[in-house]
């Protein structure tokens, strides 16, 4: 997982497979980056994510709650067709802005 912090925006570049096992580590890493910083925008970049299941959805909803609690926003980008379908099934598109710009690099 790579990340960039610019102004009040944290961008996290997720990669590989997001399941129950890996989601636990991501949750901790992202929460650590957010704590003690006045960040108002969290961008989750899924361009290099090869797989995600409902545990990944839970991790995203958790970060949405973290950002909402501080009056900030969560954006998602780089969704594959499979992940886009998962986002819709979970209703995530109703609470999270998904940037239309597709910057997927390696997959599909």
């Amino acid at each position: 997982m790579r990340f960039e912090i610019a102004s009040d925006c944290l961008t996290v570049f997720l990669d590989g497979e997001i399941d129950h096992h890996s989601a636990q580590g991501l949750r901790t890493q992202i929460e650590n980056l957010l704590s003690n910083r006045q960040l108002q925008t969290l961008i989750l970049d899924f361009a290099d994510v090869e797989f995600m299941d409902s545990s990944g959805v839970g991790m995203i909803i958790g970060r949405y709650k973290t950002m909402a609690a501080r009056g900030g926003i969560l954006l998602a980008r780089g969704l594959s067709p499979a992940m886009n379908k998962l986002f819709h099934m979970a209703g995530l598109h109703r609470i999270i802005s998904i940037t239309p710009k597709c910057i997927r690099r390696n997959h599909e």
Binding site: S54, G62, M89
Partner: peptide, 11 residues
């Protein structure tokens, strides 16, 4: 509280 979604069987 553990960020489980309850979506497993639905998926």
């Amino acid at each position: 509280e553990k960020e489980r979604t309850g979506m497993g069987f639905s998926l």
